Simulated scan of single mutants.
Amino acid sequence: MSSTLGKILAASVAGAAFMAASAASAQEVKIGIILGYTGPIESLTPGMADSAELALTEVNESGLFLDGETLAGVRADSTCIDSAAANAAAERLVTSENIVAIMGADCSGVTISIANSVAVPNGVVMVSPSATTPALTDIEDNDYFFRTAPSDARQGEVLAAILESNDISNVAVTYTNNDYGKGLSDAFIAAFEEQGGTVTISSPHDDGKGDYSAEVGALASAGGDLLVVLGYADQGGVGIIRGAVDTGAFDRFALGDGMFAQSLIEAIGDGLEGTIGSVPWSEGEGADAFVAAAEAAGVDPDGSFRRESYDAAALIALAMQKSGSTDRTGIRDAMLDVANAPGEKILPGELAKGLQILKDGGDVDYVGATNVELIGPGEAAGTYREYIVENGEYKTVQFR
């Protein structure tokens, strides 16, 4: 063999070894995105998933994540209401897909179930963008559960204050018959009665029924200045409102966050005019930055829990960068560090900046789209958008 040929072969072997090493180091790191792609909030879910994946794409395009790894979102259906199906979906992600963290789940009941049955036993961090029941504040989670949406304990107070500011002092209440609905109803009623209001009836409703005339009849008999509906826009909540409008039982409504959806306006039309409500939302530099980043990527930024979904995925990525690995416990231990002060403030569209600071050994304070502040595992501070439906559109009144 000539020396020239030997050098060529040696170079080829070295090049192949380098390429193999690069491929090995540039691993795909999987994050589960468990949301209700079917079920009572299926119209909200696509925008939430797209927003979470927007953050993952931003991280990948930076080229700064860990040692060249890339993030991949793996979607799974929580159904929002079927805990057995949600647990099976989460189990598949953990055991078959080997995800390192979960962005989700969405509805409170399935979130509690996944945390108790799958995530916590396997030491997997969950960051929910929309599970709001107060029960999650004290869940036995070994500090593996976080959320970017505030608790309904706060929303109940906000919704009661909105009614007071509208001179509403006498209401009927209906809520979806699960952890989310019961928790929000209890929080709202306590706050509303404390400020002197009267609740004529508090009645649960089941999702998935074709006829809500009995429920509407009971609510109408009790009466009230308006009907408070704490349900889901694509399930029982819309059925209750449609029945109330069709029979003239109520002509004005107040809604919780699960009812905020364009599909509700499309389903009810003029009958929703004057409706008031609350939904977790934010304003300011971070919210504006999210809108700009989303629109530039072709993602619609305007919808429930889209900001919270982006923030949940971004926090997971930054926590991995802070810990220097994809170790599940390391992600958990770094979450509060990257979410709160001290550190350089990071907005949507600035994830590359945050990744570089962490790579260099610095600290970040992720502000994100929703002014993220994690009070502790399982709890987040937050603000709410007070809105009114006028001329077929949700109009912002103020932020609370």
Rank of each mutant, 00 (worst) to 15 (best):
Y310T: 09
D50H: 10
A161G: 14
I240F: 13
V74Y: 07
L347K: 13
G271M: 00
I112Q: 15
S78F: 07
R252W: 02
G156N: 09
V228R: 02
L159D: 05
P301Y: 03
I241H: 04
I357Y: 12
S3Y: 15
G361L: 07
L5P: 13
D363G: 06
S304E: 15
V158S: 11
F260A: 10
G274P: 00
I241L: 05
A17R: 08
L347A: 11
A289C: 01
T247C: 09
Y180I: 06
D179V: 13
A55F: 03
A244Y: 02
Y232R: 15
K7G: 08
T247D: 09
G217I: 01
A249L: 01
K322F: 04
K7I: 10
G32N: 06
D257L: 07
T176D: 15
F145D: 01
N391S: 12
T38E: 03
E379S: 08
Y384M: 11
V173L: 08
C80Y: 03
A105D: 13
S83C: 12
G286W: 04
V173T: 09
S169M: 12
N166S: 14
S309E: 07
I139N: 04
Y37L: 15
G324Q: 01
V199M: 07
I357R: 12
G298T: 09
I316E: 00
Y37H: 15
A191R: 04
F253D: 00
E53L: 13
R92L: 10
G208V: 07
G156H: 06
F146C: 11
I139A: 11
V110A: 06
V120D: 08
G47R: 05
K345C: 14
T4H: 14
G354K: 06
G376W: 11
L184K: 08
P46G: 08
V245I: 08
F18M: 13
E194C: 03
R328G: 01
T329D: 14
L54V: 06
Y384G: 10
A297H: 05
G181C: 03
R307D: 13
G243P: 06
G223D: 00
G156F: 05
Q262N: 06
A244I: 08
A289Y: 00
V173E: 07
I388H: 06
I162F: 14
M259C: 02
G183V: 02
T275V: 06
E273P: 04
F253W: 00
N60D: 03
K30G: 09
A84K: 10
A89T: 01
T247Y: 05
Y37V: 14
A380D: 10
T370V: 14
P134H: 11
D207Y: 11
T370K: 15
A313H: 02
E344A: 11
G362L: 04
L56F: 07
G217E: 01
G236R: 03
V338S: 11
D246Q: 14
T326S: 12
S25V: 14
E193G: 04
G36W: 07
A313F: 03
G210K: 10
G376H: 10
D257N: 08
S108R: 08
A352L: 07
P204G: 01
T176L: 15
F290Y: 11
A292T: 07
T111R: 02
A218N: 15
A52E: 08
Q155Y: 05
D333P: 04
A261V: 02
V74M: 09
R242M: 12
G36K: 09
